[in-house]
Design a protein around this nucleic acid. Structure first.
Lengths: 112, 112
DNA sequence: CCCCTATGTCAGGGAAGTCTGACAGGGGGG
DNA sequence: CCCCCCTGTCAGACTTCCCTGACATAGGGG
């Protein structure tokens, strides 16, 4: 699956998600296995709302998936799991991705 | 050169520098050769002060180097050059880097 | 003299991201 | 009943980033 080069926009999202000590630590904790939110919050010593926000960002970037497991008794626990990935970044990859950016469109784009 | 794994803090800086459409575009433009600041600003259609800020960030991350060339006549031009790099990112690399974070030190382990 | 190009830095405002405390549920067990 | 653990979401404060316009400085010409 590492054969699919991300678009520039996707790359920005993923890199933005990774560029944070908290989120790096979250992924580090998830590397050793899945856990549920509250447990993770305890282990990393951060407030759940905060953790939630970071998890959302990671999930938006596709680096993490959440699964809400409801036990027979009705109690629910949300398990978080890291999504395996592999990114090879170098100048060429960046240059390539830069061409696929759809952002502010610097007008370099002429109409056809 | 790629044999040196970056520390968690360095990684955050580099990723933070890359996680921006503008900076991606800057690197993309520099991939095809060095240029000087004003030229780059024209080509990318952004204000020089703005470009300056982004260049500083890229330089702080070690992705770019600037060389102020003063001609014989005294006129100076600052050439910007992209620094070749290679980053291999996967879950393991992240987990490894997470251990080297020096930030707020969540005191997850007080035992010492 | 006036106009051009270039570097470098600053103030300021507005947008976006970060973090906290509080609250509304749902369920278990002493 | 009271206390515990879990999920999910909010409003507000706080901070940091992003961007623009303006200014200071220096050389090259018409």
């Amino acid at each position: 699956m590492s054969g699919t080069p991300p678009t520039g926009d996707e790359l920005v999202v993923v890199l933005g998600a990774l560029a944070s000590p908290h989120r790096l630590r979250i992924l580090g904790a998830l590397a050793s296995g899945r856990t549920y939110v509250s447990e993770l919050a305890r282990r990393l010593e951060m407030n759940r709302p905060l953790l939630y926000m970071h998890l959302q960002k990671l999930e938006a970037a596709g680096l993490v998936t959440g699964e809400l497991v409801t036990a027979r008794d009705g109690s629910s626990v949300k398990y978080i799991e890291a999504v395996p990935f592999a990114l090879a970044l170098d100048l060429d990859a960046i240059a390539l991705a830069a061409h696929t950016l759809t952002g502010p469109a610097p007008a370099t784009e002429r109409e056809k």
